[in-house]
Amino acid sequence: MSDLTQATRYGVLQRDIEHEIEIKRSRFICYLSRVETETQAREFVDLIRAEHRLARHHCTAFVLGADRMVRRSNDDGEPSGTAGLPMLEALTLFTRPAGSTADLSDTIAVVVRYFGGVLLGAGGLVRAYSDSVSQALTQARFYTRQRMRLLTLPAPHAAAGRWENEIRAAGIEVLGTAYETDHAAIRLAVQDRPETVTGAQRRIAALTQGAAQATDAGVSWVDLQ
């Protein structure tokens, strides 16, 4: 992503991940979760702490927002710079499968360590915490979260299902349909660019034979497969 301040898309987790590795009898259990605010991130940390009260360390890192400017990490008692920062780097440098840039965001990693009695040294800790997060990320699947222009298309009840299928086949994202008393409202999403919106309106007009016109419903972030 060449200009994070102008980001219009980024990667997010589809579901939570738990992954464990063992190094010289120490257990490192990595939890990944999707969060959208610092409050949600800290609530997730509290949840993991409560689940692993006997663990010696609960180290954390998270990155938030389309621009990925909110970045926090915590060593939680490990030597400074040996846990939280390597975890944060593992998050921010991660490239999704088939991706061309590192763009993962809205993600928190918590690594719980149960000490096995063998000191790993600074270098060993850096590798352990970094590998714990990196290996967990390889188990994950992702959505592309993209800023989209929303459209609403009114449709007769009898035609709504057919229109949905034809619009989807034309490459327009269908978010769902709300059935009102006298009509159905098909919710659509297209890239937030004037030429894309205009093109979508033309395709919709052709598919419906001019029977209906989609109206602008604003801009929102949408999860895409």
Rank of each mutant, 00 (worst) to 15 (best):
A90Y: 04
A102E: 01
P97V: 01
A83E: 02
R72L: 11
E89A: 13
F94Y: 13
G81T: 03
G84N: 06
L88M: 11
G77Y: 13
P86C: 13
V70T: 13
M87A: 12
A90L: 02
V70P: 02
D103E: 14
L88W: 08
D106Y: 14
D106A: 10
G84Y: 01
L93K: 15
M69W: 04
N74P: 06
R96T: 05
N74D: 12
L85C: 07
S73E: 08
L88F: 09
T101P: 01
M87W: 07
L88Q: 05
A90K: 07
R71H: 00
F94S: 05
A102W: 03
L91I: 08
E78T: 06
L104D: 01
P86H: 14
T101G: 01
V70L: 12
A83I: 00
M69R: 13
G99R: 01
S73L: 03
E89R: 15
D75S: 08
S100G: 13
R71V: 06
N74R: 13
M87F: 07
E89C: 08
L104E: 04
T95Q: 08
T95S: 05
E78D: 02
T101W: 15
R96N: 05
L88D: 02
T107C: 15
S100N: 14
P79D: 10
D75V: 04
S80I: 01
T107Q: 09
L93I: 00
D106L: 13
S73Y: 14
T107I: 10
L85G: 01
G99I: 04
L85M: 15
P86M: 14
S100I: 12
G84Q: 04
M87C: 09
R72K: 15
S105Y: 00
S100R: 15
F94V: 00
G84F: 00
T95P: 02
D106H: 15
T92P: 06
D75F: 08
F94P: 04
P86E: 09
A98H: 14
T92L: 09
D76N: 15
L85D: 04
T107S: 05
S80L: 03
S105L: 04
D76G: 11
G77A: 11
A83H: 07
P79F: 11
F94M: 03
M69P: 00
P86I: 10
D106M: 12
G77V: 10
M69Q: 14
P79L: 11
P86W: 15
L88A: 06
D75E: 03
A98L: 10
M69T: 11
